[in-house]
């Protein structure tokens, strides 16, 4: 009897606690981000000239699609408590190599297959170095990205920019085409997001990714083949990065390998983390990426229309991210007793 009373009391205390947070704690981060996006979107539609036009929305969708595609790959890796900094190198080098091979007359299918094969090999190598050798993901992908970029520039490609070969309408359509009035990049992003969502929420491999990200040791002890799982995650991320590269190549008919030294990887991390995917693993979903992509896309588009300087844009993005992770830290304070060593 006394026990029952105690449980009842504990229950009501818990309800009170969640009420004390003004409902913030009960809201998921993606809902919060989506709400912010809607507010910003409406504000922009009202106050920014030329924002709420169909061509602009279409441009917005095109421009954020590549980011979103990369974000899906990154999300899968980050939920598994990893990090893939080699995405941009794969995007640039593998896609450019594909273009070069197609230009040399290997044919579209063969060129794309070889590019994809290289990307998957790089991803698998990342997974191998991380799960079997045991190098931290940050260093593995930082180094492998540098290595891939270096080898690509040094031995595989001829110059900084690789142009898309002529007479390849399919390639250009990937970036510039429309299906039923919807830009193809957006369609690809939607497809990739659907596949990612399906894998993460409907397959055992996807559930294992969450389990591994939440508690790697427990997942291993339960019998999850964690090494294969890790290799698979990075291979998926690299394959998705290659696809993003093809979309990029299609939209501007070329690949500029200097994208490697841009802040693109930062933007990818930005949308992933903003949407609520935690770098300590196990938390987040594809919905997080969609929310993050929508917010950043709207923000970037508005800033471009307002003719805000690139550096100022960077500062705004950075401050937004800083605000998001600080808020996250306040809502989910670090528990020093259970925090794992080496959390980045």
């Amino acid at each position: 009897m006394a026990d029952a009373v105690a449980i009842k009391d504990g229950g009501s205390a818990a309800v009170k606690m969640s009420e004390g947070k003004f409902g913030l704690g009960t809201l998921s981060q993606e809902t919060l981000v989506l709400a912010t996006t809607v507010v910003i979107f409406l504000a922009c539609a009202l106050f920014v000239n030329g924002f709420a036009t169909l061509p602009n929305i279409s441009t917005l969708a095109r421009s954020v699609s590549v980011l979103g595609i990369l974000g899906v790959g990154m999300t899968v890796v980050v939920i598994g408590r990893g990090l893939d900094l080699s995405q941009v190198a794969v995007l640039a080098i593998c896609a450019a190599w594909s273009l070069k091979l197609i230009g040399l007359g290997y044919g579209l299918a063969a060129g794309i297959a070889m590019g994809l094969g290289m990307a998957v090999a790089i991803g698998a190598f990342n997974g191998f170095a991380i799960s079997i050798i045991g190098i931290p993901a940050l260093f593995t992908t930082l180094a492998s990205g540098t290595l891939v970029y270096g080898i690509g520039r040094w031995l595989m490609l001829d110059g900084i920019i690789t142009y898309a070969p002529d007479n390849q309408p399919f390639l250009l359509a990937l970036g510039q085409g429309e299906v039923l009035g919807i830009p193809v990049p957006l369609v690809i992003f939607a497809a990739v997001a659907l596949v990612g969502h399906f894998i993460l929420s409907r397959t055992s491999a996807g559930r294992f990714v969450y389990a591994f990200g939440d508690n790697a040791e427990a997942a291993r002890l339960t019998g999850v083949s964690v090494r294969v799982l890790t290799i698979g995650q990075y291979a998926f991320s690299a394959a998705v990065a290659f696809l993003a590269g093809l979309v990029t190549a299609g939209s501007v008919a070329s690949i500029n390998t200097n994208v490697f030294s841009s802040s693109l990887i930062f933007d990818v991390l930005l949308i992933v983390v903003l949407g609520g995917v935690s770098l300590s693993g196990g938390r987040g979903s594809i919905a997080s990426v969609l929310a993050g992509t929508a917010l950043i896309g709207t923000l970037l588009n508005a800033m471009i229309l307002l003719d805000v300087q690139g550096d100022v844009q960077n500062i705004v993005k950075s401050v937004v991210l800083l605000g998001a992770i600080t808020l996250d830290r306040k809502l989910h304070p670090r528990d020093e007793e259970t925090a794992r060593q080496g959390d980045l």
Partner: peptide, 24 residues
């Protein structure tokens, strides 16, 4: 006289090698 790409490649390779050995 190697181009910039080679330096990157060497750096990436050395880093992987060094961390790999260190970890093992």
């Amino acid at each position: 006289g190697l181009v910039g790409g080679a330096t990157s490649a060497f750096l990436g390779f050395m880093m992987l090698l060094a961390v790999g050995i260190d970890v093992k």
